[in-house]
Amino acid sequence: MSSVFGIILTVICVFGGYLWAGGKMEIILHSLPYEMMIIGGAALGAFACGNDMHTIKATGKDLMAVFKGPKWKQSDYTDLLCLMHELVRISRENPVEVEGHIENPEESALFQKYPRILESTSFVEMICDTIRSMLMNFDDVYQVEEMLDKQLEGMKEESLHGAHALQNMADALPALGIVAAVLGVIKTMASIDKPPEILGGMIGGALVGTFLGVFLAYSLVGPMANKVKAIREQEHFFYALIREVLVSSLHKNETQICIEVARRSAPKHQRPSFLEMEQALKDLKNVAA
């Protein structure tokens, strides 16, 4: 919602200030379709040329995330901690039972309690693969910690591809605006025999290209790239909770302590309180009973 408000506020202030100063919108509206076609088309073409299809699709999802916000909400953090609590508890009490959950999570009654988590394939694979390694007596804490750190780093870098692509586009837009302006000047020079009032309008139209390039770069695309980066980095904390729980478990801490360590590493504005987490775990026990 804040992104929509920011875009509306930017447009109102920029064009409102221009009109208040005595500017006329006719020249901008007349040149806008042509300049936008040149600048937008060149930007999209360069974007498609410089990125693979996976990054292009990911960027489309990133743009949707700018307006929808992070995927994981506070309730998802509580669900994840509850899921990890049960997996750690079962793996200690009955390793054979936990194998049934991690070998086929799609059909696991435990995973099915948390459909939003289950639909994230890479996320579920990370949980299952690590617990599977622990069941195979791969219990060197530092090796597991290093393995998880590398996996999380790779996931984070991949999630930021869209933000990097958008930032590259933002960096290129001012130069593309100059390209559009130069083309407008070329067109103006070809009509040098026209009266000054006509030439003035043509030069003004050419400068719309420079304006659009700078405006799109610093008021829209650049801020969107920053927002995408912030969202993906925030979501990374969600995945890092797995590391905190499993590494703490390998240190032979009590299951409740493992969950508390992970809870405290969650972002403050999405972190469930101690009492909320305690109540959620009590509810789990009541359902199981």
Rank of each mutant, 00 (worst) to 15 (best):
Q74M: 08
G100E: 06
F138S: 01
L63D: 01
A65V: 00
L148C: 04
L63R: 00
E86F: 04
K73I: 11
D76V: 13
V66P: 00
V96G: 06
E97C: 09
Y114L: 04
L63N: 00
E107F: 12
F138H: 02
E93T: 04
S122N: 09
D129A: 15
A48D: 13
G69I: 00
E158F: 00
D62G: 04
E99D: 03
V98E: 05
L110D: 02
E93K: 05
L83R: 06
V96C: 04
E125I: 12
V141K: 10
M147G: 14
V88E: 00
V96A: 06
E119V: 14
E103K: 10
Y77C: 04
R116W: 15
P70T: 03
H85V: 04
P105F: 13
D129M: 15
P95L: 06
D139Q: 14
K150T: 12
M136L: 06
H101E: 07
K57R: 13
H101P: 11
I56Q: 15
E97Y: 14
E93I: 03
E106M: 08
S108A: 03
A65H: 00
L160T: 01
M136Q: 08
H85D: 06
D139V: 12
S108D: 02
L63M: 02
I127D: 09
R92I: 07
Y142D: 13
N51K: 11
V141S: 10
Y114H: 13
M84G: 08
S75H: 15
N137G: 02
G100Q: 07
M64P: 00
G162T: 01
G162I: 00
L110S: 01
S91N: 11
P115I: 07
P70G: 02
I90A: 04
V66T: 01
N104T: 03
Q112P: 08
K156D: 11
G162S: 02
A48G: 10
N94A: 06
R92F: 04
V124R: 05
H54E: 10
L87P: 05
S91T: 12
S75I: 13
G60S: 03
M126Y: 14
E103G: 09
A58G: 08
Y114D: 07
E125W: 09
S91Q: 14
K113S: 03
T130D: 02
D140S: 04
E97V: 08
S120P: 11
L118H: 04
E153A: 08
L148H: 09
V88P: 00
R116G: 11
D139A: 13
H101C: 11
S122P: 07
D140I: 03
